[in-house]
Every structure is written in C-alpha cells, then in structure tokens.
C-alpha cells in the first residue's frame, strides 16, 4: 500500500494505492484521483510551466507551459531546452516554442499573447 496526496485539484484527497491489486486506488473523491494515483506509481508525470526570453515586448519574459504532462524524470532536461529560445514580439497565445520535447510528442507553448512595445 502506498499513500499519497492527489495533486490534481485543490481538494488534495489522501489516496491509498494497492500495488498488489493493479494499483487500485481508494480515498479519491473523483475518477481523476484514481487515474492520478495509478499513474503516480507506474509512470509519474508533470505539467511544467516556465518562461522564455522575448525581445521587443511589454515584458522581458513570456510564460510557457508544456501542452500536456511529461515524464517527471524529464522535467529538468525539458527546462534546459528553454534556455536557447528567444522570441520576437508580438506573439500570440498558445503558439509552440519548442516542439516534441525529448521525443515525448509534447510541445512547450506560450500561455499569453504579448504585444510589441516600441
């Protein structure tokens, strides 16, 4: 039995995952918790949010996120890919800035639009 806290929503249910019985999850208040409990034990993933450099915009950084969860073990390697990125304003929201992160099929995308500021 492994005990963990569900991080899918702010409720933070205490989950029990039974490794011996196909990772059966108890303690969850909704199906997403069951999914998370099993995934966290079998192949944990995270959505990563960060920023990249932008020139000519309202700010010097523009926020990005992974378009889906990536393996937890890849988080730091994924972060490193962002160091090389530099965008030019204006930029729309939800455009890819790094494609297919480490072969996961997941992209880093912008999470806001940014105007050009002269």
């Amino acid at each position: 039995m492994r005990e963990l806290t569900c991080i899918v929503c702010p409720k933070g249910c205490r989950l029990k995952v039974d490794e011996a019985h196909d990772w059966a999850v108890t303690g969850n208040s909704c199906p997403r918790g069951a999914e998370y409990g099993k995934a966290e034990c079998v192949a944990p993933t995270r959505v990563v949010t960060s920023t990249v450099r932008i020139e000519g915009g309202t700010h010097r950084r523009i926020p990005v996120k992974t378009s889906g969860p990536i393996p937890k073990k890849d988080v730091f390697a994924a972060m490193a890919l962002l160091d090389a990125v530099c965008l030019q304003a204006p930029v729309e929201a939800h455009v890819p800035v790094v494609r297919d992160i480490l072969g996961t099929g997941v992209d880093f995308i912008t999470t806001r639009a940014m105007k050009r500021e002269d």
């Binding site: 959505v47 949010t49 926020p63 996120k65 929201a93 999470t111 806001r112 639009a113």
Partner: peptide, 10 residues
Amino acid sequence: EELTGPEYAG
C-alpha cells in the same frame, strides 16, 4: 480546466 494565471486572465 486547469489553466495558468495568464491564461485565466486571458
């Protein structure tokens, strides 16, 4: 949906 802060504002 799970959004980031800037997306929520957007």
